[in-house]
């Protein structure tokens, strides 16, 4: 198959040479593909704008020795247009793209479920019907489940007991009092319920959750994801989770710096993650 056609979502673009780009695409049939798009950085390029991250495209590629060459592109849905005008959604979206890129290790290995999940996640994010961090956490949990790393949430991950107490990342989910390793976080029962709702797609329950439980859920999910990936997700550091509460110039009431803002409360509440990010 020297010439083939597929549809996919653009995950990442990297500059190559004078005016070319290497485009990483998650496709429906072929899985993750890296292709060269020639001359797309010139203003006169006929498909430069179609190959921006978040774009859902129909494309034709020519199989090459190491990288394929993208020969034609048609836009199906440019999700980037909707996301880029809303900064919190944009940062959540980039974290989704980076996670999909890291989770799918091999190139040209079909990953249909990941592709469908990506498409659903981008659509939900672009529609703007749910809070971006909930969409992001739902995407993380389901991506992990597709990859075979679904956290145990209803019974102890070690012995199966129903009365659970803590969330132990290394044990694979919630654990009972007897199995609890030292240093495991003890989240609120509502936080675990929120994680279950996000994993199942129960949006009514997820939307009704309280902000503090969402924050706790985000911290646990991010730590769990990065533990299984065995590396950090760079975009996560820039995801905006709580913009409200800071004054317009960007300083928050506690006087922390807006621009290099991190998640101090998350760091404090989850010693396991704090130890790893250090």
């Amino acid at each position: 198959m020297s010439l083939y056609r597929d549809e996919g979502v653009v995950l990442r673009t990297q500059k190559l040479g004078e005016a070319d780009r290497i485009i990483t695409i998650l496709t429906r049939r072929t899985g993750k593909v890296r292709g060269v798009a020639k001359g797309v950085r010139r203003t006169m390029s006929r498909f430069g704008a179609r190959l921006e991250p978040f774009s859902h495209v129909d494309l034709q590629l020519h199989a090459g020795r190491s990288l394929d060459v993208i020969t034609q592109v048609e836009t199906l849905r440019p999700y980037g247009e909707a996301l880029v005008t809303d900064y919190p959604r944009y940062t959540a979206g980039t974290a989704m793209l980076e996670t999909a890129d890291r989770l799918i290790m091999g190139e040209k290995e079909p990953a249909l479920r990941q592709f469908l999940l990506m498409l659903g996640g981008l659509r939900t994010l672009a529609e703007g019907t749910h809070e971006p961090r909930l969409v992001l956490d739902a995407f993380f949990l389901r991506s992990l489940a597709v990859a075979g790393y679904a956290p145990a949430l209803s019974g102890c991950a070690r012995c199966g007991a129903e009365a659970v107490r803590a969330f132990a990342i290394a044990s694979g989910g919630v654990v009972c009092g007897a199995c609890r390793p030292a240093g495991a976080a003890v989240p609120a029962a509502e936080t675990i319920a929120l994680m279950i709702a996000l994993l199942r797609g129960d949006w009514a329950a997820a939307d009704a959750s309280e902000s503090r439980h969402r924050t706790e859920c985000s911290g646990l999910v991010a730590a769990y994801l990065q533990w299984h990936l065995e590396q950090g997700i760079r975009s996560l550091r820039h995801v905006e989770r709580e913009w409200a509460g800071r004054d317009p110039v960007g300083r928050d009431p506690a006087g922390r710096d807006p621009i290099g803002w991190e998640w101090p409360e998350r760091r404090a509440s989850h010693p396991e993650e704090a130890a790893r990010t250090r």
């Binding site: 990442r12 991250p53 980039t94 760079r234 975009s235 550091r237 820039h238």
Partner: peptide, 11 residues
Amino acid sequence: AISPIDGIGPD
């Protein structure tokens, strides 16, 4: 430019 995927934030 801001590019979270490359680790470049506003800071």
